[in-house]
Design a binder for these strands. Structure first.
Lengths: 336, 336
DNA sequence: CTGAAAGCGCTTACAG
DNA sequence: CTGAAAGCGCTTACAG
């Protein structure tokens, strides 16, 4: 049972003062090369590591970034976190993870913790319930404490902070246009996140892409039972020829309901959705998807935050858009 | 731009000493009720929060748990993390997240960080590469520093620590037996994790369940191309009637290859695998799966760790097994 | 009941 | 070039 050696102990062993040891370890020009060598040698021998808590107390920095995640079971966020972690690691920063589970109350508690001095900066994706309530005071409060904040993924909010996300409007706009160009007319959307910023932006993009005479087909519900009914109606009554899925559940539900009702993909129905590539390729048929490059998104968000913390970036807040890509698999094949 | 008020400042405003303020806020019996009230009132007014770094330095505790995750993109680990976070939250503990990406070198670095005083205890799932190398010194080193460690999920290692996981041997043993009882004889395994502890245990369970005359069919490779070939051979040449999938990729690959080769599920081939229920139900046909209750596993691991940290548990190290359940969906249906 | 002092493990301006 | 002192924001044994 070892315990970490301290500066004091090192000083005692070397018969010098604590200050000398500290300076030597930090390569201070005040200290003679010989002393520096002696000190470093012993420190290495004892595997000395400065106590981070003490260093933090002195510097009023924690070397830690807080990440607020709405739902880690969503593989998108898991990958975003992975990208953040990688970037943080290169910078020698630690990650403190907080999961709101899409709850407003929990998010409020977390926001309180975030201002308590645990972290030097914060990456936030705002919870669903918070978006419903339109209550953002607790988030803005974090800013009051001069703690740098970057919003990631869920960025459609009126707040004076840096934002890193994708252009949800454009993704659905482009996808709709592309289907139309290939001769598909009856295009529908399935979504369980229509009440959230990103969900709304996607619907808007779709609507804008439709032409004068086109009808909107939007199957939207956060309740799975009701979503199912609406998608069924869209498939069986409205007989849409393509479905854009705005999230995992709605995409997979459309896919599954087509199967249950003998609707052939891609012959009778094309599908593109927000699911991850690692899954999409295994589906039968494989399903075309929007690649959001979540790891890049996470990395970028972390980078923007770091530049704020370091004051490398002191300009006005900015919005950064990560490019998205449609990956076409079997579910959007056009057979000749 | 606010900044947190300190004890000192509070003391100045109240015209009392810092010690008095500190004691009052901690409800010390040394302090008069009247003073306590005055102090708390002002503290509330200024939304005082003790600086956690200072408290940590005094107490040599950090109120933080380190979680070492091999791969967060694996939804199993994402859910485990979610369970841990929930339990930690109830205890007022924070989570420091480290992702090894299955790399030995990165894990070693993290292990070093874990002994630097950032965390009061550690939850570890050992990286794949580490298991291959059979190099566990860096993990054991954490123990040397008297930091409580709990191994979760990947627990088949000879180390004197608490362990929380599932009984991988039994899961595949039972599943094999169950298929046999229903009259299935040619049962195969698909696995990309055969070189890891959990993967080995599953294979062993399967082997033990087979009878005298049964043949083993094991399609194993960590390389996707080679795994594909082996599964194909198992399906087409060995003509197995059932496949147990040991992980996401191997399960989905068997499922997909059956589709590509006109092998009907469940008529010609039954499938059960380690995939998550949220996905399994949407597949076409839906795929039977092993529910590992990852959130419970995470919760339990955190609980065991907390009890060690609090010294509520000072007994010998133990192994805790979380029950698993087979959820039967269409891929194992027996039509009459 | 209140306060001065010491100390947690560091860093750094200042003195020698 | 080295060291004593002050201080980061707390807690707590001790004195009064």
């Amino acid at each position: 049972m070892k315990s970490r050696i301290t500066l004091k102990e090192l000083a005692r062993l070397l018969n010098v003062s604590v200050s000398t040891v500290s300076k030597a370890l930090n390569d201070s020009p005040e200290i003679s090369p010989k002393t520096i060598e002696r000190v470093k040698e012993l420190a290495a021998l004892h595997n000395y590591r400065p106590n981070p808590t003490a260093v933090n107390l002195k510097s009023s920095k924690s070397g830690t970034i807080g990440v607020l995640i709405p739902n880690i079971a969503n593989s998108f966020f898991a990958k975003v976190l992975s990208g953040m972690e990688e970037r943080a690691q290169r910078e020698g920063l630690q990650l403190m993870t907080y999961i709101s589970n899409e709850s407003y109350d929990r998010e409020k508690q977390i926001a309180e913790l975030l201002t308590s001095g645990y972290v030097d900066g914060v990456l936030i994706a705002i919870a669903e319930e918070t978006q419903r309530k339109k209550e953002f005071e607790h988030i803005k409060n974090v800013l009051q404490y001069d703690i740098p904040v970057v919003l990631y993924d869920r960025i459609g909010f009126d707040m004076a902070v840096d934002k890193v996300g994708i252009d949800d409007h454009k993704v659905f706009y482009d996808a709709t246009k592309e289907l139309q160009e290939k001769g598909i007319n009856r295009i529908g959307i399935a979504t369980s996140i229509h009440h959230m910023g990103v969900g709304k932006a996607r619907i808007d993009g779709y609507r804008e892409a439709l032409r004068e005479n086109d009808t909107f087909y939007v199957a939207n519900s956060a309740k799975m039972e009701s979503l199912k009914e609406k998608i069924l109606k869209m498939l069986l009554e409205d007989k849409v020829e393509a479905v854009l899925g705005s999230d995992f559940d709605s995409t997979m539900m459309a896919y599954r309901l087509a199967y249950e009702n003998g609707i052939r993909i891609p012959e009778d129905l094309k599908i593109v959705g927000f699911i991850r590539g690692g899954l999409a390729k295994y589906l039968t048929p494989s399903v075309s998807y929007f690649d959001q490059f979540p790891d890049k998104l996470g990395e970028k968000a972390m980078e923007v935050l770091i530049n704020r913390i370091n004051k490398k970036n002191t300009g006005p807040v900015q919005k950064y858009i990560i490019d998205t890509k449609v990956v076409h698999l079997e579910s959007t094949e056009f057979k000749k």
